[in-house]
Design a protein around this nucleic acid. Structure first.
Lengths: 351, 351
DNA sequence: CTGAAAGCGCTAACAC
DNA sequence: GTGTTAGCGCTTTCAG
């Protein structure tokens, strides 16, 4: 009733047994051939080859992983796939992973609960490693502990642009501090003296480094740091628009705004247009990230480029390295950012 | 030398055996408890609970899947994660999948070779189902055959916005035809008589339905179909910019352009600004998709909204249904699109 | 170079 | 309710 009929075999996928039988060799030999481990004689070789093709054999990775304790799966935890910056990172990770025969699972985990569940699920799937991305916003302590424990248990991990959760976890980031500083110096060089900052939640995550850079830039240019010019917000377009409007209604509004990321800068541009301000004649805007659209919007956005693709690629490389050699000492790399001056920044209006 | 020391056990993860031993029951009982299958007495129940927590037991999904022949993995094949529209679909898929305990693997496969390799790898991982997305551009016949074969072998599959590869594969799409038609009718109602179309590769994929809708819209409005107003291109900003410039240099340029997607429309907007054309006073622009940025760019983009999130959600729902009941007859659903009139479309200039 | 046999960690009958 | 016994499909000693 439940025998494996030839039909079923063809339909549901051949096993290593069926291949071995057809080729007239033992499963061990087939296994050796598939994995390229050990020697296989020429005769067996070609007969197995033939059998595999005839049966359209595709080895069962589940069974394989059960033995080898390597799933050849690695996970990338994103807070938001919809963010083009994250998407670039994902591509980088994927490119590096694919080269090594690994396949990345991309998860976007907006809430701490989703993150917790996802991490659990990934652990059950025995993924070989985890890449954690920035902009994680508010992570619950519980999750930090969970990740820490995982690391303790030997799970390979690398953090992109955020403090590592564990001494064993690797780290890759960009020098956003220097990038932000360069942006402010650029604006100052154009004659701006009142430069606003629109950030994400400043106390944590991404915004912090950029705010620090902003302050340093101000100091470099010997400009006073006016706290009323610093606005806290989210990381999206809406927030950029809102905070810009707030800045604009100041008694002495800034002539330039530096935004925590490009999406925020787009919002700023929208707000400025609404209020009838010309960019860059009346107000200059500088973003951060250099997402693809930044170059295409009019006016084209001056921004600080982060090598997102490279960030992802490097993270995956670190991770694969650590998977192969778990005892690798802590790895860390910080990539430079680069100011890309386009149309949205110009000379300060002389008032 | 290689014994499992208590340390290792704690470190590398407990097995169902260690839990059973600690709780003083058989593995079968633990298994029953973990899976909620069969009855487990109150006493055993609490002792197992205790043991699981003490050992931080996380069942090995690999072993589980090997038995059940269900990996609880499903894959989403995207051509480009960087496309916000795809990202939305991904979120929809993820939301639906997560609810059912499935975890989606998102792969962006730009080239046919990458697609082939990815599909192979996914098959080895024994994913339970595949979701194929639109904009697949030129897929090699070889890959079509591969997918077809997979379907034959019983792999669950659903296609989003593209012709299914197999009678067994489900289908979910949006009524882009009607959407495009509505866009053109909208423009005609504003008095436009020369309406351009900027498409992707028209002979295949996405562009086709929209072009057809465009033509129908023209017919509805009793406007002539001028072939010189139809431009073929890619699906990105650059292409939109290029083709718009081409349209603008026509002896009798259009007063409105309908773009195959929002990214193209952004390019069109950029081109128009470069040439000193005001939008919508001189030229109106309508996009397609309604990606988040469309509302925020200035002028805000008039566009046709596709329910991307819902598309993904529904696709995942279909897929999960088919996984649960492989013999389900072919499912198919087409979701409506909706015209969202914003600032980029306005009355035709009276010349 | 090749085969036999013992698992990997879990589930699924089938007894008790 | 609970234990026993086979496997799932592959890898991996260990003998030839």
């Amino acid at each position: 009733m439940k025998e494996v009929t030839p039909f079923d075999e063809a339909a549901k996928g051949a096993t290593i047994y069926s291949v071995a039988e057809r080729a007239g060799v033992s499963v061990a030999t087939v296994s050796r051939m598939v994995n390229g481990s050990g020697y296989v004689g020429q005769q067996s070789r070609s007969r197995i080859q033939e059998a595999m093709e005839a049966l359209q054999f595709e080895p069962n990775g589940l069974a394989r992983s059960l033995n080898t304790k390597q799933s050849e799966l690695l996970a990338l935890l994103l807070t938001d796939i919809a963010n083009p910056f994250s998407a670039q990172i994902a591509r980088g990770v994927q490119d590096a992973a694919r080269g090594a025969g690994y396949i990345p699972i991309i998860c976007s985990t907006d809430t701490p609960e989703a993150e917790r569940d996802t991490v659990r699920a990934l652990r059950r799937k025995r993924v070989d490693g985890l890449i954690l991305t920035p902009m994680q916003g508010e992570r619950s302590d519980e999750n930090m502990a969970l990740l820490h424990t995982l690391c303790d248990k030997g799970m390979a991990m690398v953090c992109i642009g955020r403090r590592p959760v564990h001494p064993h976890a690797d780290e890759v980031s960009t020098d956003t501090n220097a990038g932000a500083r360069a942006a402010v110096v650029h604006l100052a060089a154009l004659g701006h003296r009142r430069i606003g900052f629109i950030g994400g939640q400043i106390s944590r995550g991404v915004a912090m480094g950029r705010l620090a850079g902003y302050r340093q830039g101000l100091a470099d240019a010997e400009l006073p740091a006016d706290v009323s010019l610093v606005r806290e917000g989210e990381l999206d377009e809406d927030s950029g628009r809102r905070e810009t409007l707030a800045l604009l209604s100041l008694p002495l509004p800034p002539t330039a705004v530096f935004c925590v990321n490009d999406r925020t800068a787009f919002g700023a541009l929208a707000a400025l247009t609404e209020r009838g301000c010309r960019v860059p004649e009346d107000v200059s805007v500088v973003g951060f990230d250099d997402i693809p659209l930044a170059a295409l919007i009019r006016p084209a956005l001056t921004t600080v480029r982060q090598p997102a693709h490279e960030l992802g690629r490097l993270a995956a490389t670190f991770l694969l390295g650590r998977i192969a050699h778990p005892e690798t000492p802590h790895q860390r790399s910080v990539l430079p950012c680069q100011l890309v001056a386009r149309q949205s920044s110009g000379r300060a209006p002389d008032d």
